[in-house]
Simulated scan of single mutants.
Amino acid sequence: MKNSFLLQQSRLLYKIIWQKIQSSESQSADEKKWIECAFVLTTQAWLNIEKVANDYQFMNKQEEVCFYKSQKPRFTGLIDYFTLLYKSVLFQPEDYTKREVYWKRELDTCITCISSFKTACLNYQLLQSDTDTCFLQCNNQGPLLFGNNAGMLDLKSTSYSCLLGRLIALKKYKKYIQEKLYNEIPLRQTG
């Protein structure tokens, strides 16, 4: 399955867009504009891959399952990550002294959500007797649900790919928050 044309192409595209996003972050003076551009780039990449996948003749169900279990959550997770970032940056307090409290609260919420989504992913895997068949029926044609409040999803009825995508987004978001706290708080305390 690792040699699947579609898997190779989507992995390569993911690597390319992630490198573009990271290099543009260091060059961008406006964080909101960077997030918007990254969101658009990632969304366009996934929509192009999805279009190819819809016309692609999978060799067998195993290849199809592998694609939707590995690639769809990576891309939708990245899309969701930029949605979370944009919301948090947009609503962070203007008052610099209140930002520490804001980011610590965001971190606490994020950690709680990560735990919930990890449990939901594990439960999904444990409760499905034939996870691959169920996965194909429930996940590969599901719409993108990015932009939903992480706590608002019904974890029991949400597809596995959506749960895994959200978990990927939350883990990236946690790292972002930790960097924000590490980089901004010492500046305020010494300044």
Rank of each mutant, 00 (worst) to 15 (best):
residue 183 N to T: 13
residue 26 S to G: 05
residue 49 I to P: 02
residue 65 V to R: 06
residue 108 D to A: 13
residue 43 T to W: 12
residue 166 R to K: 11
residue 50 E to D: 13
residue 72 K to R: 11
residue 91 F to A: 04
residue 14 Y to F: 14
residue 149 N to A: 15
residue 154 D to F: 07
residue 82 F to V: 03
residue 102 Y to V: 10
residue 3 N to M: 05
residue 119 T to S: 12
residue 185 I to T: 14
residue 27 Q to A: 09
residue 121 C to F: 02
residue 74 R to I: 07
residue 131 T to L: 05
residue 71 Q to A: 02
residue 41 L to G: 03
residue 39 F to W: 10
residue 48 N to Q: 14
residue 23 S to G: 02
residue 53 A to L: 06
residue 141 Q to Y: 03
residue 2 K to W: 00
residue 182 Y to H: 15
residue 111 I to S: 06
residue 146 F to Y: 15
residue 41 L to Q: 13
residue 54 N to T: 07
residue 179 E to L: 12
residue 38 A to L: 02
residue 148 N to E: 14
residue 63 E to V: 06
residue 90 L to H: 08
residue 111 I to D: 09
residue 16 I to T: 13
residue 3 N to T: 12
residue 18 W to E: 04
residue 67 F to G: 08
residue 160 Y to S: 08
residue 149 N to F: 01
residue 169 A to D: 07
residue 106 E to V: 11
residue 121 C to G: 02
residue 189 Q to C: 13
residue 59 M to D: 13
residue 176 Y to S: 05
residue 178 Q to G: 01
residue 125 Q to H: 11
residue 80 D to G: 06
residue 38 A to H: 08
residue 34 W to M: 08
residue 184 E to N: 06
residue 47 L to R: 15
residue 69 K to Q: 12
residue 187 L to F: 00
residue 28 S to K: 14
residue 163 L to D: 02
residue 141 Q to H: 08
residue 40 V to G: 01
residue 65 V to T: 07
residue 29 A to M: 12
residue 128 Q to A: 02
residue 92 Q to R: 10
residue 40 V to M: 11
residue 161 S to P: 00
residue 121 C to W: 01
residue 100 E to Q: 13
residue 70 S to A: 05
residue 55 D to R: 14
residue 129 S to Q: 11
residue 169 A to T: 04
residue 147 G to F: 10
